[in-house]
Design a protein around this nucleic acid. Structure first.
Lengths: 185, 185
DNA sequence: TATCCCATGTAACTAGTTACATGATTCG
DNA sequence: CGAATCATGTAACTAGTTACATGGGATA
């Protein structure tokens, strides 16, 4: 279960469920997503399990915040997860399932439209990653290697996204060319 | 919901739940996985929804097989899914969540060990894809483009896997070098 | 005779999504 | 005064996992 461990990782610093949601929607968005309706109960559960503690804090606007912080046991559980080695082989890639059955569309035009939409999506993702990167580069003159640990490792996930999405765009281009060639054959 | 549509795609030809499981474990394994305990009830549901029909067939060994075949409505639903455009942005990549928090491990050696294990996994996946490809190449002299439709589109998913996994291995190498450089700095 | 593959399923559980409910403050 | 943002949650549902249950036929 990764969500649990992600919350334990984020709770190195005091944070509320609302704060965490914002992190999912920005920094973590390349590899994980979660809704508030999943985050809040999970934080409560981690607290009853003794992995987090909570405190109330005033917020400038709106109701009181409940801020969480991880315990020693919480940190230990996160470390166990990392020490158990990479969690791989569980990914589901829906668009590839669609490509697998793309012959069910009834024209090459329809198939090319599908591939064009796919390519556009990934190009947009790549642009987003570039913009995040520019923010970092502006903040750290020694970017990407001269950064504190708690930014260096997140930066690695961005670098991975760039590699993978770049490769996916290249595959889209290749695929579009192959379908066109096939159409004229 | 992708599983439903994948089953509708596979049920173009008559197949049993058991057959489908084998397809998940071989051809589809690059982008989706499913257990028998999810497949069997889902097939039953698709039948009651009028998207599949079923028949019993003798099997050489073991009990009777229940073979499914999709209806016109089933085919139409699959087409609707494809025509609605690519399903993207839902992926969860657990190993990147781990990398994001890798600074929580307490030595560079531990971090390099993690990255080494990750690299080894992807190298192995790449070798598997190469072996699948060699099988295809042996069967079709005009590989990869001169293949029937119902093999060409699956082949595209293999090509995508090769691109993406290749890029991931390159990222692992780059990352290992960056962590080493950081360790000596 | 033991193990593997064939073949179908159910039960209990965990994980994640969508919709709903509440209420304060701030900005235009 | 209306919309956006802050802030927390519950309820109902869908999706997926793990464990259990059954039993035939083939192979070693």
């Amino acid at each position: 279960m990764s969500l649990k461990h992600i919350l334990l990782g984020l709770a190195e610093r005091e944070c509320s469920g609302y704060d965490i949601k914002k992190e999912f929607d920005t920094s973590l968005r390349n590899f994980w997503r979660a809704e508030l309706s999943q985050i809040y109960p999970q934080l409560q559960k981690l607290k009853t399990d003794g992995l987090l503690t909570s405190d109330t804090a005033e917020s400038g606007q709106g109701p009181q915040r409940i801020v969480y912080h991880r315990t020693g046991a919480g940190k230990a559980m996160l470390k166990d997860w990392l020490e158990a080695g990479p969690v791989v082989g569980t990914e589901r890639i829906a668009f590839l399932a669609q490509v697998y059955f793309l012959h069910e569309l009834d024209s090459d035009d329809a198939r090319l439209e599908f591939m064009g939409a796919l390519r556009a999506y990934f190009v947009e993702r790549l642009a987003f990653l570039d913009s995040v990167e520019q923010g970092w580069a502006a903040k750290y003159p020694g970017y990407p290697d001269d950064m504190p640990d708690d930014e260096f490792y997140p930066q690695l996930t961005l670098a991975c996204g760039k590699h993978r999405i770049g490769a996916t765009v290249a595959w889209c281009d290749e695929t579009i060319a192959r379908i066109k060639k096939r159409a004229t054959a």
